[in-house]
Amino acid sequence: MRVQFGGGHCRKGLLLALTETPPLPTSTFESQPPAIGEIPADRGVDFEPDGHFYRIEKAWTQVQQLGGVFRTLILSGILAGVAIPLIVSGSEPWIRMGAPAVWLFITVLSLTHAIVWPILSYRRYLYRVDESRLQIRRGVLWREVLDVPRNRIQHTDVGQGPIERQFGISHLIVHTAGTTSASVRLSGLREDVAYKLRDELLGAQDVETI
């Protein structure tokens, strides 16, 4: 999968990096940030550090689904290992009938979750970068808006798991000195976007600190 993208913004990025003035969009500190419940307007997947929301790659859904299906297979395999002896040599008829029913129920439930959940989470998975922070909004039932100040970022990882590689996407992990936010993971980024985001976050760090 070869992704195409324009070159104009990158030239701008280079210029900014050389003059060492980080982009300071005026739209960043909107008078009222979008409510947690609503899905804010986004500008697609071609990330720019302009304070607007961007989406992760749609392929992330498939990566998650595939991972979920694998987990389901392992789970139902283990459960089958428990269930089969019960079916074969269950002392009571309700055990012989119940064991496969429970097995089927859990497997179907897990499979449904694996297929449906990523679709739901994808809708609510957005991020943005402005002059002071990286913000990630995500979550279906427990919705979170996570802000990491730029200059608290200690180091970053850009990585790619085996399934992610098949779909040409990467993830960015931002490490802070914090506890619950010691490593903040942003998944489903196109590889070049991940690198761009990383450069953006590490690049303009020590500007304007007290």
């Binding site: 419940g37 996570l146 802000d147 100040p149 608290r152 914090g178 936010s181």
Partner: peptide
Amino acid sequence: NRIQAAEVIEKPFDR
């Protein structure tokens, strides 16, 4: 200057 990150969480009942 000790803040490492800030999170706003909306739990199901918060909604």
